[in-house]
Every structure is written in C-alpha cells, then in structure tokens.
C-alpha cells in the first residue's frame, strides 16, 4: 500500500463487503433485504409526514363530523341535507379533489388535509348520527324523567351509549385516511405515497413504503380498538 488515498475520497461503501448478488438485485429493481436495511432511513421522514397528515386530518375531521352529528341529532331535518353533502364529497375521487383544490389552496399540507378531512365527514357523521338515534327512547325518557337536563342527557347517556357506533366510524375513517394519504403527493404533501411513486418499479421500495402504510393503518385500527375497550367497560362485562 504505497499510495495513500485520503479517506474523504474513498467512494461510500468501498470498505464494506458487498454481495455482488445484492448490487444486481437493486439494479434489477428486485426485492433486496440488505438494501432495505441500509436505506430504511429515507422512509422515516415520509412515514412521519404520513402520520402527521393522517393524525391531523382525523382529529379535525372528527371534531367537525362529531359536531355535525350532534347538530343533526338535535335538528332532525338537517340529517338529510348533511348526508347528501358529505356523500358527494365522499364520492369525488381523492386524486381529483386534491387537484381541484390546488387553484384554491395551493400545493402542500393544507390542501391535503382539507381533502382528507372531507373524506372523514360522511363516515364519522353518519355513525355519530346513527349511534345517537339508536339509543333506546326509554333510556332517554328515564334520564330526563330523573331530572337530567337535555345537555346532561346528551353527554352522560346518549353519547356514551352511542360510543360503539361512533368509534366504529372512527376506525373506518382512520384506515381510510391512511390509504388516501398515500395519494396526497398529488397535492404536493409528500408522505409514503410520494416514495412509492418515485420508484414504482423497484420492488424493495414498493414493499417497504406500501408495507409501512398498511402497518400504520393496522396500528391505528388497533389503537381505536384499544380506546373502545378502555372507554366501554360495560361491553366487556356483558361478554363475560
């Protein structure tokens, strides 16, 4: 070893043992475990961007839809129009909605979140309204008959009893939003979808980015399920 090469000039990976098959694998766009291990870092930021888009949209969407659900419970005639409007929003394909919003709100998180919030509305709104409507009238009657005010009846009796339905809506909304957020790159909001799209032929990339999205959906689903159990001890008691 006569000539000394400054370390800085050594190409990255020069000193690490490289499996020739592995290089081949990447070149062919295959499924390469070692590549995945080495490049996992690049998915961290998109993953958290995905979590951010999903979480913020669900939170805002839930607050709005819950409020609309309560409103429709009080003013029954609003149920029809609210269902119609949220249904139309729901039917517009997300790619189209992202693009249709671009001239109004520009590229970025705002547009993505507005669209994602729109998609949560029908699911959560309808489940809240249905859940409240299903509370047996004799229980509401007994509650008011004992002197709970209408607000107390709503918060202490009707909403807790509608929780299974409401949380079922939240579960559907959660996994739906994770899926739709993969298309948020059309609104310039990044996320795991942007990673999938950037190398759509590369198996390793598709598996990791797609897998993370599925895992996120599953994790959220379990989280809401856990919430459901924690909030509804009476359900478990019945099952026992």
């Amino acid at each position: 070893m006569s000539a000394k090469i400054p370390l800085a000039q050594v190409p990255e990976g020069f000193f690490t043992e490289r499996d020739p098959d592995d290089l081949d694998c990447v070149a062919q766009g295959g499924f390469c475990p070692s590549w995945i291990l080495e490049n996992f870092d690049r998915y961290v930021d998109p993953f958290f961007q995905h979590v951010y888009l999903t979480g913020v949209s669900l939170a805002i969407g839930f607050v709005i839809a819950f409020a609309l659900g309560l409103l429709a419970h009080r003013k029954r005639w609003l149920t029809g129009p609210l269902t119609a409007v949220t249904s139309i929003l729901f039917t517009i394909p997300s790619i189209a909605l992202f693009l249709l919003l671009l001239p109004l709100t520009g590229r970025g998180n705002t547009t993505a979140i507005i669209a994602l919030v729109a998609y949560t509305q029908l699911i959560i709104f309808r489940n809240v309204a249905n859940g409240l409507r299903q509370v047996p009238s004799d229980i509401v009657d007994a509650s008011e008959g004992m002197g709970l005010t209408p607000m107390q009846t709503l918060l202490r009796v009707e909403v807790p009893m509608a929780l299974p339905e409401i949380l079922a809506g939240l579960r559907i909304a959660a996994s739906t939003t994770v899926g739709l957020a993969t298309l948020a790159f059309f609104a310039g909001a990044g996320g795991l979808g942007a990673e999938i799209e950037s190398q759509i032929n590369f198996k390793s990339n598709v598996v990791v980015a797609g897998g993370l999205a599925v895992a996120l959906a599953a994790a959220l689903d379990l989280a809401v399920l856990g919430l459901q159990r924690a909030l509804m001890p009476w359900r478990r008691a019945v099952a026992a």
Binding site: P136, A142, S143, M146, P160, M161
Partner: peptide, 14 residues
Amino acid sequence: EIGYVIQQIGLFPH
C-alpha cells in the same frame, strides 16, 4: 324531586 319508574326501566346500560 320526583321518583320515576317506567315499564322498560331505562337503566343506563353503560
């Protein structure tokens, strides 16, 4: 201040 009992009872299941 008035006790109230109905046929369906209306106990709060939760």
